[in-house]
Design a protein around this nucleic acid. Structure first.
Lengths: 112, 112
DNA sequence: TATTGATACATCGTATTATGATGTATAGAT
DNA sequence: ATCTATACATCATAATACGATGTATCAATA
């Protein structure tokens, strides 16, 4: 796991990205998928995930659909068209940010 | 500039990295250097920088040296030996984090 | 059959941290 | 004179991930 603060600002983009790849996912599934994709390095906590999903829905970026699996409820989320419009800018920013981190923290270049 | 929250968790590591490359720097200089290295994408604000420098000093990772430049004070910071020990782990974490971001936000790979 | 771990949702208070606002002051340029 | 850059500082605020807590189903296993 990365230090807690490092994860700030990436949760909403992660959700947007996953839902642009998979069309619909439910909360627990998102946690597992991020865990898998990150090689167990990003473990989203329930206390972070559910409020964030609700926030994205309240912002109009996600719609929901509840499905009963046996006696258990499963709540699927998918991107609204507004939500789809958020994906590309978020990806661009995050990938750019990742590159900047590599410049900043990578080996020092000649002092030119 | 990146969204505000994205920068959380990177300020202390940035300072540690810069001071491991340059042996001593003062606050204003750090701001300029980060601006330069990031291609104007990371503009550290004074309200962030000075409290963070003080925090790192209080944690024992930085020592200070005040120099008068004309009538103006300039406060140099350098790594203590404790501080030097913080650099490598911070670099490792941040570079690893950057790679993870690229996996998460990069193009979707085959679903295997 | 009792217990544990995984699945699956939710809320709320807390901690952390970058920033805006504000303040002080020197110095060069227009 | 006025504006911009240099150079330090503090404090209240906002944003957000998380721990703690709660409810409940279901499969495995001791």
């Amino acid at each position: 796991m990365y230090s807690r603060e490092l994860l700030k600002g990436i949760l909403k983009p992660i959700i947007l990205k996953l839902l642009s790849d998979q069309s619909r996912m439910y909360g627990y599934e998102i946690v597992q998928e991020v865990k898998r994709l990150s090689g167990d390095k990003i473990l989203i906590k329930e206390g972070s995930l559910y409020p964030t999903l609700h926030a994205l829905a309240a912002e109009g970026y996600l719609s929901t659909e509840s499905v009963m699996i046996g006696k258990r409820t499963r709540k699927y989320y998918k991107l609204t068209s507004d939500g789809k419009g958020q994906v590309q800018p978020a990806l661009t920013e995050l990938l750019d940010f990742a590159e900047t981190l590599q410049v900043l923290f990578g080996p020092k270049l000649s002092t030119t």
